[in-house]
Amino acid sequence: MALSSGPLSAELTAGVAVTDRDPSPARRPGKRRRASDEGTRGGLTSLLGFLPLAFLLVFGGIPIVLSLLLMLGHLGGPNSAVSSLGQDEIPGRGIGTLGAITQLFENHAYLQDISATAIVFVVTSAVVLVFATTLTLWHRLRPSRAIATLQFLAVIPLFIPVVIASFSLWTFWGSRGFTNSLAQLAGISNALIFSGKLQGVVLAEVWVSLPFAVLLMRAGVASLTDSSLDAARDAGARPLTVAWRIALPQLRKEATIVFCFTAVGVLGSFTVPYIIGPSSPLMLGVDAVNTFSSYNQPQQAAVIGFTIFVLAALIGCLYALGSRRRRVGR
């Protein structure tokens, strides 16, 4: 052994010496090329990083700035195309005017629209969160074919166009729909009509949002380790205690994502509240579209857009808080 290890190490040293002290001319350009490759790669990387940024700026950032300007009454320049056909515009000079904003916010109906929207997205998100978590966690802790089927069914709306779904739900929950017929059979007339009501919007939004929420929570629940759940039961926790005290706290991040994404989705939704919702109050998405295309008021529509943006930003803050990593100690 001693003998064989000697020559081996000598050979190794020799090998190193050859490449280090006596680089063959053929290798030099290779090295240089490698260096320049890295340079190109660096450039490419920064370009790849820049592209999405540029994309965001051109297709997201600039339009946002333009609509902000429009809201403040800067009707000329790039906004002239939109404003030339618009109605009830309030032009602003200098920094601009808050006229369009005050006009809307002094309107009681608009404030009702905002609160209706807020109620719908909060309730919808909460219901979606509870449903998605219950379905996925239950299946994880007590797997059964029934829950698996429910989970599968919950994902189906993903494959049904929202317009078609909304229309069917509108019929289903209408005065001649299935639910009301059932209610009438039970002797409670008109108790289960949801079409044209905010409750209907909530139900439909839950229906629409559930698939994504279930998929996301399923991923979250899958990331819980068996051993951490087993250890809890081993420590004497019943399944409900395991869910509440061990699993749920670990799913905080997923829960935040589900809640916030559902909320933002509902906030910006149009089709569901348009088809199912009441004629008044309107959800902001419908309000914005009506104001823009029906009432032909682009400036006021920009205000509504901005209101939605602010609400979404609030949800974004919640998201940032909730998905932040826990820092303990110190």
């Binding site: 109605q87 309107n107 109906a109 009441p278 004629s279 008044s280 309107l282 009506n290 104001t291 029906s294 009432y295 032909n296 008021q297």
Partner: peptide, 12 residues
């Protein structure tokens, strides 16, 4: 456009 706005405001 005006009519639709006023209707939305006054009617439902």
């Amino acid at each position: 456009s005006d009519m639709e706005r006023v209707w939305q405001q006054d009617v439902p």
